[in-house]
Computed example of a mutant assay.
Amino acid sequence: MFINEVCTLMCDDIRIENTNKLILIGLYTPNPANPIPIIGVRGLPLSIPSLTFFQLLDTDLTETRTFQARIEHLDTGRMAAPVLNGQIQFAPGRVPNLIKFTGISITKEGQYSMVLDISDHPVKFTSSFDVKLF
């Protein structure tokens, strides 16, 4: 039994078309100088209405599991958004997982992480991003 992270993308929002195709809005992309996405801001504190994470997970499981997801500042451990609780339905192969945070409060520059903790799984999946003043 395994669950592996194939990729995680961070964007402002995700919409689902009538044809079940996903539209990723405001995709944050890394660049060669910095391998993790950067949110550039003019000042702090900052309130972000939403951040959405699109994940592809690879698994051999056929079951539903609960998860918790959080966004935290790496240096301080301070939560930037309420902890999300949800469920994910696994089926063998690639499984998409959408996690949408609302009411994000950024009070400090630095590196943040979205941490996904799936029940009964020993590994926490982490996706990082930087917040920098410009």
Rank of each mutant, 00 (worst) to 15 (best):
R70W: 08
E72C: 06
F129P: 04
E17R: 14
S113Y: 05
T107E: 07
S50V: 13
D117Y: 07
T66R: 09
E72D: 10
I48A: 01
I16R: 10
I38K: 03
L27K: 11
T19M: 05
D75S: 08
N34I: 08
A69G: 05
P45Q: 06
T66G: 13
M79P: 00
I14Q: 08
Q89Y: 12
H121K: 11
N34M: 03
N85E: 07
C11R: 04
T52V: 14
T29K: 15
A69Y: 06
I16F: 11
S105Y: 07
I36C: 00
A69S: 14
M79W: 07
P32G: 04
E72H: 13
G26Y: 10
D75V: 08
P30E: 12
R78K: 12
G43A: 15
M79N: 05
L51C: 09
A33R: 05
T66F: 12
L61H: 11
M114D: 00
I104A: 00
I25C: 00
I106G: 02
V41I: 13
L27G: 05
I16V: 15
T29L: 15
V131R: 02
P45S: 10
P82I: 13
T64Y: 01
C7R: 11
G43D: 13
F101H: 05
V6D: 14
T59L: 07
A33G: 14
G93F: 05
T29R: 15
F2T: 13
F129L: 08
I25N: 06
S47H: 11
P122N: 15
P96K: 10
V41F: 04
K132N: 06
S119K: 10
I16G: 04
G103P: 00
N4Y: 14
R65H: 04
E109R: 03
N18L: 12
Q68D: 12
Q111Y: 06
L24P: 09
T29H: 12
H121S: 13
G77E: 01
P45D: 03
A69E: 09
A91S: 11
R78T: 12
I38A: 00
L116P: 01
L84A: 05
D130M: 04
M79K: 08
Y112N: 02
L74R: 10
I71L: 06
K132R: 09
E72Q: 14
S128V: 02
T19R: 09
L84K: 02
K124F: 07
D75A: 11
V95D: 04
D117G: 06
I14S: 10
I71S: 03
F2R: 03
G110C: 01
L51K: 10
I99K: 00
L57R: 05
G93L: 05
I48F: 01
F134E: 07
P96Q: 08
A91I: 07
T52P: 02
G110T: 01
F54Q: 04
T29S: 14
L46H: 01
P32C: 02
D12P: 02
V41G: 03
D75K: 09
N20Y: 11
T102G: 03
A33S: 15
L9T: 15
E109K: 02
